[in-house]
């Protein structure tokens, strides 16, 4: 008797999601000194390139810079025109973790799979330029890769990679992040 191969999780519908992009989003607000102060203090990075204007002018960047990855947090801030999803989440469910129901602008359509368990598979960051004070930040998500692997028991699962490019008002790419999740 021949053994039947397990059904593939990488269906044509799933494969068709590779390259699908979300809307281009202009982040709310700008890169500002106060937000950067809070971020770099919480990161415990005392670099004077982030706050000492005179010193920053003497560096190769010629101005104050911001940590590259900060744009991803700036971009995910809840916009004031979004209402108050945190309060709403707790009103609907007191056991809420407070973030599950927050809609983020520029989100991608879901991958059509019945694999519902989500695990973090890793992150990547490529850095090309540092943001500066006053920068407007734009970003766009896309599915850059979806591949199938087999678990130890032969059950297929998916590794889905979402890529996000961040750029400024001068169309200078600041950084590209990739977040991969396992779907079992």
């Amino acid at each position: 008797m021949t053994q039947q191969a397990p059904p593939t999780a990488l269906t044509p519908e799933v494969q068709a999601m590779v390259g699908v992009s979300g809307d281009i989003v202009e982040s709310w607000g700008v890169m500002d000194a106060e937000y950067m102060r809070r971020f770099t203090q919480a990161l415990m990075d005392p670099d004077p390139r982030y706050w000492d204007d005179e010193f920053a002018k003497s560096t190769r960047y010629g101005q104050i810079i911001a940590p590259p990855i900060m744009v991803s947090y700036l971009a995910s801030r809840i916009r004031p025109d979004q209402g108050d999803p945190i309060t709403a989440a707790f009103e609907e469910n007191p056991e809420s973790d407070g973030i599950g129901s927050v809609e983020r602008p520029g989100e991608l359509p879901p991958v059509p799979t019945n694999l519902v368990r989500v695990l973090n598979a890793g992150n990547e960051i490529e850095v090309y330029a540092y943001p500066s004070i006053g920068d407007k930040i734009f970003f766009q998500n896309r599915y850059s890769d979806i591949r199938e692997r087999l678990g130890r028991d032969g059950t297929p699962f998916l590794i889905i990679t979402r890529e996000t490019r961040f750029w400024n008002q001068d169309d200078v790419t600041l950084c590209i992040t990739r977040a991969s999740t396992i779907r079992r």
Partner: peptide
């Protein structure tokens, strides 16, 4: 707590 506040991550864990 300071990191949660800085990046506005309200996850209770």
């Amino acid at each position: 707590f300071r990191w949660s506040a800085a990046i506005e991550n309200f996850h209770r864990i």
